[in-house]
Design a protein around this nucleic acid. Sequence first.
DNA 1: TTGACATGCAACCGTATGGTTGCCTATTGT
DNA 2: ACAATAGGCAACCATACGGTTGCATGTCAA
Lengths: 104, 104
Amino acid sequence: MDDVFKALADASRRSLLDRLHAKNGQTLNELCDGLAMTRQAVTKHLVILEQANLVTALRHGREKLHYLNPVPIHQIGERWIKKFERGKLTALSELKKQLEKRDG
Amino acid sequence: MDDVFKALADASRRSLLDRLHAKNGQTLNELCDGLAMTRQAVTKHLVILEQANLVTALRHGREKLHYLNPVPIHQIGERWIKKFERGKLTALSELKKQLEKRDG
DNA sequence: TTGACATGCAACCGTATGGTTGCCTATTGT
DNA sequence: ACAATAGGCAACCATACGGTTGCATGTCAA
């Protein structure tokens, strides 16, 4: 779980996920297109995404095809975000109460 | 949005959010209790959480009360995670197809 | 008023991170 | 066969990050 959060912390990596979401199965060079970064930097990001299991790569001859794995993202939603959804209203109303107590 | 992802990337900070979720409105010292970290380290984490708008702090005399703001977490779910939910099955089936093509 | 308590500020430190450059290897098309 | 193409590896660099220590400030209670 920590790997996933760490992987998602970087905007470049999130944008790589976006690109794969738009078009799955891209090669390294395809993913580099139009980015202000060297190929090696992209490689490093992809390694981190693969370690977090957010991307799966398949070698196909000399090409490496990258596939998005949406499962960990989904799990963040289910296991982590949902926990904070419950009690959302409670938390906000408590805060509001405190603010009013102070200001009023 | 980037601030939120960055703030969530650290396990200590996520655990602080957990603590506030369990008991809202805690002071700095309360939040330090039982953590293997100095007060100053916790302060720094709280600053980052406040900058990401995940925590709101209110001064009450010499105490500083910290309140969880679940809104950004919710937004991550709505604006970011949901985007990847759509097409989740599609992505996985594409990947499976590719895997079978390679292995079979 | 003064001591204890809650927090703030700043300098410092080691390591992780994001990025680069340079070179090497493997595959493929002609 | 061999040049071009796709990718991998390793060293290096600046800066961000998580943490510490030491001291200063503000507030409350006796």
